[in-house]
């Protein structure tokens, strides 16, 4: 296309946009030229949020939605650093970060009167709004482990040195400590019991930071079992026929949540609330479950049976989950990290 035709096409585009936006109701004009900044994880999560929340919001209000992608640690650092003058409106973080952010006054407390608060399972909005429900279960090599394992199976002598753990600190590691403590007859408030029990699993086969790494080692037979968070794992299993995933019963899977936080004093609070309603809404939550195997937090979501089988979405399943005392776990993070470094990874 020549420059001339290109600029003519651009002009036509511009004219069309102006016509369309001129025809929108007055409300849409209120947010024109405004930008909502949303910090979240890249990949499928970004894709679904763009499709189900950002695009409808842009069409409805005339605002722009800008995504800032990265890990939740980056977002925590940003909202704390920008405390006096926030530039991010919405930050997606982990359950082990949200209550701390609320306590430190970085995020708005969840509003019990908001419709999207009421749609979420009772007692789940700790710190921020619960975005998805996933459980810490066990991924296992079907050739080495014949039946879906229970937690206690990881301690069987034949699997010594073949158990992998995720990097610490993180929801997975805290969950495993909670499970280990319970197998020792205590709970996470007794870190000596938790670390003592977990230490029996050493030497750890490996610490994984990505599914790609852990599945390669599992396919090679170097790793028999690894505590992992459902969700991505389940969608990845399709390409790894020899790997299975088990939701144990004693104790049940550890509940882990992604949280949606409205940043305190953010530049666009109204847009942020509209975005939250869409992200927590039935459409997005259904897509999360069907495409990512992330259990919906929205009670009104109904899933087809074959999807429901793989995600946490019924009241009974939610009740069976093991819930940790996250505020306590968070308060122990620095100490536990050092204990993990020395006792579990021990060089």
């Amino acid at each position: 296309m020549s420059d001339n035709r290109l600029s003519r096409a651009a002009a036509a585009c511009l004219a069309a946009t102006m016509l369309v936006t001129a025809g929108l109701p007055a409300l849409a004009q209120d947010f024109k030229g405004k930008t909502l900044v949303v910090g979240t994880w890249g990949g499928d999560i970004e894709r679904l949020l763009r499709q189900n929340a950002a695009e409808p919001l842009e069409n409805e209000t005339g605002a722009k939605v800008e995504f800032v992608l990265g890990g939740s640690g980056d977002r925590m650092a940003r909202i704390y650093a920008e405390k006096a003058n926030p530039t991010m409106d919405i930050a997606f973080v982990n359950i082990y970060e949200a209550p701390q952010a609320l306590k430190d006054g970085m995020v708005e407390a969840p509003d019990p009167n908001a419709p999207y608060f009421k749609d979420v399972w009772d007692g789940m909005n700790n710190g921020c709004y619960a975005m998805s429900l996933v459980g810490l279960g066990i991924a296992y090599n079907k050739k080495l482990v014949s039946t879906p394992p229970e937690w206690a199976d990881m301690w069987k002598p034949e699997f010594k040195g073949k158990i992998a753990l995720s990097s610490y600190p993180g929801s997975e590691g805290d969950g495993v400590l909670g499970v280990a403590a319970r197998l020792a007859g205590k709970d996470e408030h007794d870190p000596d019991a938790a670390f003592g029990k977990l230490k029996e699993l050493t030497p750890i086969a490996m610490t994984y930071t990505s599914l790609d790494e852990i599945f390669a080692m599992m396919d090679a037979g170097e790793v028999a079992m690894a505590p992992m968070i459902s969700g991505y794992v389940l969608s990845a299993l399709k390409t790894h026929p020899d790997i299975g995933f088990s939701f144990p019963k004693e104790p049940g899977p550890v509940l882990v949540r992604d949280m949606l936080c409205l940043v305190k004093n953010s530049p666009e609070p109204e847009l942020a609330k509209k975005f939250a309603a869409l992200a927590l809404g039935v459409k997005n939550q259904t897509d999360y479950a069907e495409q990512l195997y992330f259990g919906p937090t929205n009670k009104n979501v109904t899933l087809p049976p074959e999807v429901s089988a793989d995600v946490i979405d019924t009241p009974d399943e939610v009740k069976a989950l093991l819930q940790l005392d996250w505020p306590y776990v968070i308060s122990q993070r620095a100490d536990w990290t050092q204990r993990w470094n020395k006792e579990i990874l021990g060089q």
């Binding site: 650092a77 990097s167 600190p169 490996m206 930071t209 990874l345």
Partner: peptide
């Protein structure tokens, strides 16, 4: 971080752990 598989802590991995995970 990737090739050590968590068995070998170095300055870089520990600094990451403290900044990005322990916060």
């Amino acid at each position: 971080q990737i090739l050590g598989q968590g068995h070998i802590a170095t300055f870089g991995t520990v600094a990451y752990q403290q900044a990005g995970q322990v916060l």
